[in-house]
Amino acid sequence: MFQLIVQTADTLRNRFNIDIRVNSEVTHIDRENKIISVNHNSQLEKLHYDKLILSLGAKPIIPHITGMDTQPNIFQLRNIPDLDQIMANISSDTKHVTVIGAGFIGMEVTENLVKRGISVSLVERSNHILPSLDIEMARFIENELRKNFVNICTNSTVIKIDNKMLYLNTGKSFATDAIIMAAGVHPSSEIAVSAGIKIDDNGGIMVDHRR
């Protein structure tokens, strides 16, 4: 896993003299007094700032699906620990995996599962895979997926899970051993909201020409 990490906290600290706090979470922003509250191993520390840059990232979108608690193997893929969890649970007994979301992450997941000899169903709510691309471009990739026996379900969403059975809004249903969520991301802006910072309808922090 560590071979995938370009830099570590120690190398950045030594090279650039940056005070890096790993395993730490900012739980509150006091904008009036310019103080942030940081939780590290259940110990709370308050730090003063002159300028504060919010780089909050994003969180995976987890669709609300009836009966999700009946499926034992549901995973999200956003970071290296997520990948480790998937690799630890996808075994020789895993014959079929459903990937929800046919964007770039969904494509990467599907390709690697097929290379491992696992049957894949790909569920995408748009009318074609890779919805960020033109349909003409996406069609070439779709044809390649079908050559590798990937079950592509476009214009589809999973509306119900009953044990290992998935039910789609189109009326189709099939059994699966695991589900990998790759339905995109949304801004992780909860702490900004609690600090009174304005966000847009998609949850992103609103900015102007100065900030």
Rank of each mutant, 00 (worst) to 15 (best):
L47I: 13
I80P: 05
N143I: 11
L122E: 06
A195G: 02
V6M: 13
F16M: 12
H28L: 12
L166D: 03
M165Q: 15
S91I: 10
C153P: 01
Q85R: 15
S189I: 13
I180Y: 01
S55Q: 09
T94K: 03
R116H: 12
H186A: 14
D30A: 07
E190L: 08
A138R: 01
P60E: 02
V97I: 14
N89G: 06
N39Y: 05
N14M: 10
N169M: 06
D162M: 08
E136C: 08
T66F: 13
Q3A: 10
N89C: 10
D69E: 15
I191Y: 01
T70W: 07
A9W: 00
V22E: 13
L113S: 00
N41F: 14
N112Y: 05
D50R: 07
I135M: 13
G203N: 07
I152F: 04
N112K: 09
D10F: 10
I36V: 15
I159W: 00
R21P: 00
G57K: 04
F104A: 11
V158E: 04
S55Y: 06
E190W: 05
T11K: 15
G196Y: 06
I159G: 05
D82L: 06
L133T: 07
A58G: 08
K164A: 05
T94P: 06
R116K: 15
D84H: 08
N151W: 00
M181E: 03
G117P: 04
A182S: 14
N127S: 15
N155M: 13
V26Y: 01
